[in-house]
Design a protein around this nucleic acid. Structure first.
Lengths: 245, 245
DNA sequence: TCCAATCGCGTACGTCGTACTCGAAATGCA
DNA sequence: TGCATTTCGAGTACGACGTACGCGATTGGA
């Protein structure tokens, strides 16, 4: 029982609130712990957000946190949904699906860049309230075209997958830049360059070589590159919507 | 210097082979270590593939491995490219792009299910030889339609992102089933059910509720579900190819 | 034969998540 | 008001982990 219980996601084990009865009152809260953990992770990376460190930042010890969160992994789930909460969306979609999905995509990217640690976490979709809100907004944007709910899910999935992957890639470059002090161009020239040149000259990978020689994507600004890929995805969605050329 | 050196990916630090000169000859190899690590990870998860455990399986200690691999993270890169090597592809694409990309997608899914640990690793695209081979095959399939190389890259990215995300999702359910002894249906009914019902009944997430009530995706077989999403992506690509209705 | 390079690997350090435990604090009820 | 009951805060401790360091064993060339 307690073995299976631990597998249950944090969303099904709500925080006890406003208990009435005897016993000391809690001095902290999930939200507070989560906030501190996010701050540490933002500044020093997810690995720095250890239980000990979070406790220290709160003026307490590591073990106190376990009154509020069953395991560190669950805390990370809380952190993920917390940052999704920063995605700013209107009450409901505008009616222009392309504009709405673009908004979600750009907002999600912004959050990702603000909290780089979340990009490296590939996990099952969280069912937290903020994630559900974004999901619902996005699917609403695709409603009204006569599509089956499963089609909408798949189409929105394309956007979500693209954004996650693009942000992951972008953050990879930022990390590289921060840890080596070189920007993308320098890095390419001084480190990857020789290796890539070797690969290209081997002649074994003609398309990769073309991408290196003719590709413009890697010379574009991060924002422009993101937009380029997003347009590709949105064009794919447009083709699936009846009545949209 | 050595700080930056450590950031360089494993692909730029090739294994010393066939050294001539004094010194003892190596008793192991990167390939051998990688193979053992993959076997352990397949059977017991990536966390079980510790340096100590890999050494033990080879009849040696943990520190011996560091003669071959700079860091455990680099070993994981090697493992990733090694399993991509299991993707079976013909010498060159057939000319039917949809068939070719489907093949890559299904092969990649098969590899992912065979090595579940790889799904949880979200990292920058590896530049290993096997990964390059799959990349080149896929982009070749999209060649000849007059598209710019960047367009091909973006279109193939949609497939890659979808497959990665779908496999991750599928493996999430398999893990859940293995660790709790329940299949997806049981799990839904006994654990997630009450929570989902609560979410649905809150009325705050109408599209999520519709997905729960009307959605057929979660009732389909994993293979069929994968194919459904893949078709959505491939349809999106078809729309981008000139001359393909 | 001897030197210098390389390998195998034992030891040890710092760090992590977290199980266990118990005194302190806060309440409801007598 | 005093006490029984319940919950919280947090110190201590354990068993992992990755890996820095250093040394003896092995090897080929001079």
């Amino acid at each position: 029982m307690s073995a299976a219980e631990h597998q249950v996601s944090i969303w099904m084990r709500p925080e006890k609130v406003e208990r009435s009865g005897p016993g000391r009152r809690p001095g902290y809260s999930r939200a507070q712990i989560t906030r501190v953990a996010v701050e540490i992770a933002d500044q020093e990376g997810l690995d720095a957000a250890t239980m000990r460190r979070i406790g220290q930042e709160l003026g307490t010890g590591a073990m106190s946190l376990y009154r509020y969160v069953p395991r560190r992994d669950d805390l990370i789930d809380l952190m993920l949904d917390a940052v999704v909460g920063e995605v700013e969306l209107p009450e409901r979609p505008s009616g222009d699906w392309r504009r709405d999905l673009s908004l979600v995509a750009h907002q999600t990217r912004a959050v990702g860049l603000r909290h780089p640690w979340q990009a490296t976490l590939a996990r099952r979709p969280t069912l937290g309230p903020n994630s559900l809100r974004v999901y619902d907004y996005s699917l609403s944007a695709l409603d009204g075209f006569g599509l089956h709910i499963d089609e909408m899910t798949s189409l929105y999935g394309m956007v979500g997958d693209y954004v996650a992957s693009a942000v992951r890639d972008e953050i990879g470059w930022l990390d590289q830049a921060r840890s080596t002090g070189m920007d993308r161009k320098q890095w390419m020239a001084e480190y990857v360059g020789p290796y890539v040149r070797h690969v290209v000259e081997s002649g074994s990978y003609p398309m990769f070589s073309r991408a290196i020689r003719e590709g413009r994507l890697s010379h574009m600004s991060p924002h422009a590159r993101f937009q380029y890929g997003l347009d590709t995805v949105l064009n794919g969605i447009a083709a699936a919507l009846p009545g949209n050329p």
